[in-house]
Amino acid sequence: MSYTAIIDYGAGNCTSVASAFAALGGETRVTRDAKVILAADRVVFPGVGAAKSAMDNLERMGLVDVVREAATNGRPFLGICLGMQILLEHSEEDGGVELLKILPGKVRRFPDVPGFKIPEIGWNQVNGGTEYYFVHSYYAELGPYTTGTTEYAGVTFTSRVQKGSLLATQFHPEKSGKAGLALLKEFLAC
């Protein structure tokens, strides 16, 4: 049976992601089992919280190579928020964290700018158009695979990135109302 695996590696809860896919009629399995992840038709890599603890969790659960394979094996893969950042090379968070290096680019902290709160919380535009829901203190620099950009605190950052079958978003499509569900529906149709 066709299903979407949602990787549960202890970085935030997967309930909202599963419930958004359920609303679209998609079968999901929330799992940390390598076999279930690699046999899935498509994989979602969510995440909130800190990069270092997320990387530690992935290593402790033996999922580093599993995520790498799922993100590059040609089947649809979706990274969300911290799940996008972890695909990059390096993050400034927690004094510096080496990431998975599946995509080029670095993750930096928003500068302290008067009038801009950190974390950025709320609905912001992607490519000057549709708004999606963001919650983050760190951002990914623009890179060769950036397909969506967003502005905050004087920075233009990567809010959407695509490399072949790998799609990743800084915003939370599962919390972005109809616009978010439309994106997830496209992902399900891949």
Binding site: S16, H172, S176, G180
Partner: peptide, 8 residues
Amino acid sequence: VAAAIHIP
């Protein structure tokens, strides 16, 4: 509520 809405 979580199953019915998809905003925070």
